[in-house]
C-alpha cells in the first residue's frame, strides 16, 4: 500500500486507481451512514477521492491513510449535511414512522439490513442530531473508531467527542424507546 501511495504522489493515476479500489468501500460506508442516502454517498466518495488526489503530497505517512481519508470524507459529509440543512431538506428521505421490515423483526439478531432499511433506520435515529453529533456517533459507534482516532479525524478534543457522543446515544435511545413503546427508567 505504501508503494501505491508513493506512486500516487508522483502523479501515477493507475496506482491511484488501485488506492481508490482498496478504500472506496470504507469511504462509502462512512458517507452512507452519515447521510443515509446512497446517491449522495457516492457523490461524496467521488469528491473526497478527487480531493485526496489533489492533496496527496500533503499526506503524512506516519499517519494511517484511512484516518487521513476519513478526515476528508468527514469534511465533505459535513459540507453536504450543512448544505442540505440550508436548503431545508435535512431529511429528504425522512423516516415515515415505521419500518417496512427488518428492524421490527428481532427474531434473528444476525439479520443484516439492506441499504434502504439502513437509510431508513439511520435517518430515524439521527433525525435530531447536529452534523457534529452525527459524525462522532457514526465514527465511534458504527465505524468503531477509537476516541483517539475520532479526535484525529474530526480535530475535536476528547471532551468534546464524549459530550457529543453522550447526547447522540441518549437521543438514539429515546428514539428507540418511542419506536418500540418502551418507557425505560431514564438512566
Amino acid at each position: 500500500m505504501d508503494d501505491i501511495i508513493r506512486k500516487s504522489t508522483e502523479g501515477d493515476a493507475a496506482s491511484f486507481g488501485l488506492l481508490v479500489k482498496a478504500h472506496q468501500g470504507y469511504a462509502f460506508a462512512l458517507a452512507f451512514r452519515m447521510l443515509a442516502d446512497e446517491d449522495e454517498a457516492r457523490d461524496v466518495v467521488q469528491e473526497s477521492f478527487i480531493r485526496v488526489w489533489k492533496s496527496i503530497r500533503r499526506y503524512d505517512p506516519s499517519q494511517k491513510f484511512t484516518t487521513w481519508l476519513y478526515a476528508i470524507v468527514s469534511r465533505v459529509c459535513l459540507d453536504t449535511l450543512r448544505s442540505r440543512s440550508r436548503s431545508n431538506r435535512l431529511f429528504h428521505r425522512g423516516f415515515d414512522g415505521s419500518f417496512d421490515d427488518g428492524p421490527r423483526d428481532s427474531s434473528d439478531p444476525e439479520k443484516t439490513y439492506s441499504n434502504r432499511e439502513l437509510a431508513q433506520l439511520i435517518s430515524q435515529l439521527s433525525e435530531d442530531l447536529t452534523p457534529t453529533q452525527r459524525l462522532v456517533f457514526t465514527l465511534r459507534d458504527l465505524q468503531e473508531c477509537t476516541i483517539a482516532e475520532v479526535s484525529a479525524i474530526t480535530g475535536l478534543s476528547e471532551g468534546s467527542i464524549k459530550t457529543n457522543l453522550s447526547y447522540a446515544r441518549r437521543r438514539i435511545r429515546n428514539v428507540l424507546a418511542s419506536q418500540y413503546d418502551i418507557s425505560g427508567s431514564g438512566s
Binding site: 489533489k54 443484516t112 459507534d141
Partner: peptide
Amino acid sequence: TMHRLRTSMPVLTQPEDLVKSILAGI
C-alpha cells in the same frame, strides 16, 4: 439495533463505475 447497524455494511453498487468516475475527475 446498534449491533445490526454496525454489522450491516452499506453495499456499494457498481464500484467499478465509481472508480472510473473518480479517475475521470482527476
